[in-house]
Amino acid sequence: MGQPPRIAIIAIVDDERAVRSGLSNLLQSVGYETDTFDSAEAFLRDSARLASVVLAIVDVKLKGASGFELFTHLLQLPAPPPVIFISGHGDEVMHQQAIELGAVAFLRKPLDVDMLLEHIERILAAGGEGRA
């Protein structure tokens, strides 16, 4: 028998508990392991879990450091996880800024679940690389 497939840990960083919980439940229901964080600072503090994250879903507007500031910190890591930005306040300028920073996707809330899952599957199939 071969090795079981590696479980993909997806970090969800959003200051809204309902969003964190809803996304976590959704992703777990389709077989992903998730970790949730209510701020950029909480995510960056957990270095052990940070090292095992294969993808981060990050709200742009957070209490404390913004999602864009968090992404800048992640880019300093030896192997930064790919990031999907989400926002309830997004516009084309914010979308363009996210993509220029290097995000793999930018999705507006309320999220299109099918589109989110397609992005996740594509990113993980590509080994965490590629842009939307």
Rank of each mutant, 00 (worst) to 15 (best):
G67R: 03
D35M: 11
A98G: 07
L116W: 12
Q97K: 08
P4K: 15
L107N: 08
I9Y: 12
V19I: 06
R108L: 07
S24W: 05
Q3P: 12
E121D: 10
D91E: 02
A51W: 03
S52M: 09
R45A: 06
L55N: 10
A98V: 04
S29A: 08
S29P: 06
H73D: 09
A125E: 14
A126R: 15
H73Q: 12
D114K: 10
Q96D: 14
H89T: 12
L70H: 07
G64Y: 03
A132K: 11
M94Y: 05
F43E: 01
S52H: 10
G2P: 13
H89V: 10
E129K: 13
E69N: 01
V58G: 08
L75M: 11
P80A: 04
L111V: 04
I99T: 03
F71C: 01
S66L: 05
V54T: 12
A105C: 13
G130F: 11
A51Y: 02
A40I: 02
L44H: 12
F68G: 01
A42P: 07
I123R: 02
P78R: 05
G67N: 03
P80E: 07
A105T: 11
D59R: 00
N25H: 15
S21Q: 11
M115Y: 13
R108F: 01
V83G: 09
G90C: 03
V60F: 08
K63R: 11
P82L: 02
A48T: 07
A56I: 00
S39C: 07
P5L: 08
L77T: 02
D15S: 01
T34F: 00
V19A: 01
V60A: 04
F106V: 02
Q76A: 03
M94C: 04
M94R: 04
F71P: 00
L70D: 10
E129W: 07
Q28E: 13
R6C: 07
D35V: 09
A98N: 06
L111N: 02
L44N: 10
D91G: 05
I9M: 15
Q97C: 06
A65R: 10
P82V: 02
H89M: 13
V93Y: 06
G102Q: 12
V93A: 13
R17P: 14
E100A: 10
G64V: 02
R45I: 05
P82T: 02
I57V: 07
D38T: 03
P78A: 03
L44Q: 14
T36F: 00
A56H: 01
V83K: 09
Q76V: 03
L107S: 08
E121N: 12
L26A: 04
E33F: 12
A98C: 06
E69L: 00
I86S: 06
R49S: 15
S52P: 11
E100M: 09
E121P: 08
E41C: 05
A126P: 06
V60G: 03
K109R: 14
M115D: 14
L74P: 08
V104H: 02
V54I: 10
L27I: 01
A18I: 15
T36A: 00
F68E: 05
M115L: 15
G2T: 14
L55K: 12
